[in-house]
């Protein structure tokens, strides 16, 4: 049995308390850490337990994002992009969004250059992580942190 809320019963007080609750939820410490476990699980699902080394991946994000709904993101991977040595996959992860997966890119020697840009949503201040997989199976990562003033997801 679900509670039936008449539209006229939603008054200013209930709306205010709902708003305060939402703010409290977003301020609970440790929430980011819990989400990071989601991120690690997502990484493991994609790349298994292989070693991920830091480097070769340059992730660019603005240091401050006023609007979390659209944050420009650029990933550049150091690679000659030849048949013998190229990037096969780039995956972008978030530790604090409702879903740890942000975007994935598949490329190869025909890309010529391993550089991709897009625009993403951020549910709060966080360090975004990009992992690049090379054709020899090695994994490299890079990250960048953005302070988000107006988060996507929290504000309707």
């Amino acid at each position: 049995m679900t509670a039936i809320i008449k539209p006229d019963s939603i008054n200013r007080r209930t709306l205010l308390s709902a708003g305060a609750g939402a703010i409290l939820v977003s301020a609970i410490p440790g929430r980011a850490a819990a989400a990071s476990e989601d991120m690690l699980a997502a990484q493991r699902e994609l790349f298994g337990d292989r070693q991920i080394r830091e480097g070769r991946v340059a992730l660019k994000l603005p240091p401050i994002a006023e609007n979390g709904f659209s944050v420009p993101l650029t990933v550049d991977v150091e690679s000659p992009m030849t048949d013998a040595d190229h990037v096969t996959r780039i995956a972008v992860f978030s530790p604090r969004n409702p879903l740890p997966d942000v975007a994935r890119f598949t490329l190869g020697p025909r890309a010529g250059r391993a550089g991709v840009s897009t625009r993403i949503r951020l549910g709060g201040t966080q360090a975004i992580l990009a992992i690049a997989e090379m054709n020899d199976g090695t994994l490299w990562s890079g990250s960048a942190e953005t302070v988000v003033t107006l988060a996507a997801c929290v504000v309707l």
Partner: peptide, 28 residues
């Protein structure tokens, strides 16, 4: 590029509205 996939992207809900991409390919 002439029917052969040279770049692919997979989007999740974290990709902004009006998804925009910049990428590269080698002109062959």
């Amino acid at each position: 590029y002439d029917g052969e996939v040279v770049f692919e992207a997979e989007f999740f809900p974290a990709v902004s509205a009006n998804p925009f991409l910049t990428f590269h390919t080698k002109a062959t």
